[in-house]
């Protein structure tokens, strides 16, 4: 496929096809480490999985801000989701009081990839 064709053809895929993830907690903040399944997917993640997009994705589920950090050496992004855990660990009434599966919740996010 020529570069110009690739540019035109785009499709939307869920992150679960491009990345894997693990999440944990620190107080009322959940972290999600998002890791590209292949190194060549990493630039796509950097470009499209912005803090703003992740904040939008989790709208209604988190009370605070979203911070993003880049780990190009691991082809990974780290997201901090503040106010995600109903007060955190022992206070929280949530099933996922320690934010263990925010990881797979992020993998539901759809981004655009070359077709």
């Amino acid at each position: 496929m020529k570069r110009s064709d690739r540019k035109r053809q785009k499709r939307r895929v869920r992150l679960v096809e491009l990345a894997h993830a693990r999440s944990g907690d620190k107080g009322d903040t959940a972290n999600v480490g998002l890791i590209a399944l292949k190194p060549e997917y990493y630039p796509l993640l950097v470009k499209q999985v912005t803090a703003a997009k992740v904040a939008q994705h989790f709208k209604g589920m988190i009370m605070g801000q979203v911070e993003r950090y880049e780990l190009p050496n691991l082809h990974a992004l780290n997201f901090l989701l503040h106010g995600a855990l109903d007060g955190g660990g022992t206070i929280s009434l949530k099933t996922d009081a320690q934010g263990k599966v925010f990881s797979t919740a992020l993998l539901r996010l759809e981004i655009e990839v070359p077709g």
Binding site: H20, R22, S23, N31, G33, I35
Partner: peptide, 10 residues
């Protein structure tokens, strides 16, 4: 890598 990013901040 999954373990390295577990409970990570900055």
């Amino acid at each position: 890598t999954e373990q390295l990013v577990y409970e990570m901040g900055d």
